[in-house]
Design a protein around this nucleic acid. Structure first.
Length: 463
RNA sequence: UCCUCGAUAGCUCAACGGUAGAGCAUCCGGCUGUUAACCGGAGGGUUGCUGGUUCGAAUCCAGCUCGGGGAGCCA
């Protein structure tokens, strides 16, 4: 007898029809009658379930008829064509063994739940249709990311999670310490004495692997990171989490245009790969989560992304005749309403905005010849806003140091970052992609907490 | 952090100043190739918390807690 998966049965039905097989899975629902019954069984390998038919010939017929939703069972029987209209085949059980009975207070009902409630049972929600689909797509998308970069010669770098540089410039950080915080050691001035901490210095969870990735790009040419990232910002929005995953490619001998080309190619690749390899899940999202999903994704894959400078974007916004809550002026950062206008109304496709004023961008971005703007790019996408942020990095040591002086950054912390400019530095560029935002874009899910298995947000670290 | 909306049975919701209900889930029974199965019955509630107004509060008011949406920060 073959052990099979629901995915096998659905994809390779003819190989299994008429044969005796075993399926292990969890009960989605039982419809029991006096002398027979049906079980909807899902084994997690596939979006769909398999219908199991059983009758009173089973020695444990009564027990099976009383199975509670969520129970784990092992079913053996012959796969046959189904007379029912809703499924092409079904499993005619000759044996059903209960692996693990579910308790009567199993919280998932057959009718629909709100996502808010399901967040409170994040340990059980992957057993629902939506989350089953979300996390299978997430897995497939992660694979697609690796496939994309690996096939193009990028080396996967694991950058540190604990970082000693306290000024990467990407926001509030979580401190990492073994000091007892109710009696921290103090120096002569009364300040906390971090020399007595585990690492002998102040350390935090990383907010970005970029600086380290730049170093590795100067050895391997093309690298990427893909790992967890932490921001201690008090952001209470559907688009922010304290712990999320980020992808950060970095290329030596590359300029901003190369960076944008890479970002565009990568996005199109991942979208195509996911559409091709998880069609049932994507169909589900298009039907029940976001009815314009396919249209939107198709549009992205087929279109040439737009590309304008920040200055051009300001002009477009000024001439738009739109009333914005935040007035548009050269020098101010683009607000969400501005970004949405550009990508959803003006272009109606993803658009790169480049060459921002230096004042509103990070210190490491390369100064343009005008002395006012830097070689930065944000990719704005309809529906989600900023999905990628990147730049060409400042490779000229003097220009970098000058900029850091202006911003009063402590240059001593960056000696190793300066070294790659000193010892055979090259033009180089990279970007950061928030993985969860990509998943939101791919699935139409509108809350980041619903695309992370166990989300961490302000005031919330359950599970 | 700011603005705004909300919190009633395990879940999804109704009742909007006068005895707190339904569907699903659970338990018991019936029945049919069923498919958000169906039919009958039962149990299940300090209406988020604290205080106030009132003869009387789920309902009106205030504060707090938690959650949703929008904004800021960002990916």
């Amino acid at each position: 007898m073959n052990k099979a998966t629901v995915k096998d049965l659905c994809r390779l039905t003819n190989n299994y029809l008429g044969r005796r097989i075993q399926i292990n899975g969890w009960v989605r629902t039982v419809r029991a009658s006096k002398a027979f019954g049906f079980i909807e069984l899902n084994d997690g390998t596939f979006f769909g379930s398999v219908q199991v038919v059983y009758d009173e010939n089973l020695p444990n017929f009564k027990e099976i008829s009383k199975l509670i939703t969520g129970s784990a069972i092992r079913v053996a029987g012959v796969l046959v064509e189904s007379p029912g209209a809703k499924q092409p085949f079904e499993l005619k059980a000759d044996s059903i063994e209960v692996e693990g009975l579910s308790a009567p207070d199993y919280p998932l009902q057959k009718k629909r739940h709100t996502f808010e409630f399901l967040r409170t049972i994040a340990h059980l929600r992957p057993r629902t249709n939506t989350f089953s689909a979300v996390f299978r797509v997430r897995s497939t998308a992660a694979y697609a990311i690796h496939k994309f970069f690996q096939e193009r010669g990028f080396v996967y770098v694991h950058t540190p999670i604990i970082t000693g540089s306290d000024a990467e410039g990407a926001g509030e950080m979580f401190r990492v310490t073994t000091l007892a915080f109710d009696q921290t050691p103090r120096d002569e001035k009364g300040a906390v004495d971090f020399t007595r901490d585990f690492f002998g210095k102040e350390t935090n969870l990383t907010v970005s692997g970029q600086l380290e990735a730049e170093n590795y790009a100067m050895a391997f040419g093309k690298v990427y990171t893909f790992g967890p990232t932490f921001r201690a910002e008090n952001s209470n929005t559907p688009r922010h989490a304290a712990e999320f995953w980020m992808i950060e490619p970095e290329m030596a001998f590359a300029e901003l245009q190369d960076d944008m080309d890479l970002a565009e190619e990568m996005l199109k690749f991942v979208i195509s790969y996911v559409l091709e390899n998880t069609p049932e899940e994507m169909q589900f999202f298009n039907s029940f989560i976001d009815k314009s999903l396919f249209e939107r994704l198709d549009n992205v894959v087929k279109s040439e992304f737009g590309q304008i400078t920040y200055s051009e974007a300001i002009d477009i916004l000024k001439k738009s005749g739109q009333q914005f809550e935040y007035p548009v002026e050269w020098g101010v950062d683009l607000q969400t309403e501005h970004e949405r206008y550009l990508t959803e109304k003006h272009f109606n496709k993803p658009v790169f905005v480049t060459d921002y004023p230096k004042e509103i961008k990070a210190f490491y971005m390369r100064m343009n010849d005008d002395g006012k703007t830097v070689a930065a790019m944000d990719l704005l996408a309809p529906g989600v806003g900023e999905i990628i942020g990147g730049s060409q990095r400042e490779e000229r040591l003097d220009a970098l140091e000058k900029r850091m002086d202006e911003l009063r950054l402590n240059k001593e912390d960056y000696w190793w970052y300066f070294d790659i400019r000193k010892y055979g530095g090259t033009r180089h560029a990279g970007f950061g992609l928030g993985f969860e935002r990509l998943i939101m874009y791919l699935t139409g899910m509108t809350n980041i907490r619903d695309v992370i298995s166990f989300p961490r947000t302000p005031k919330y670290a359950e599970f």
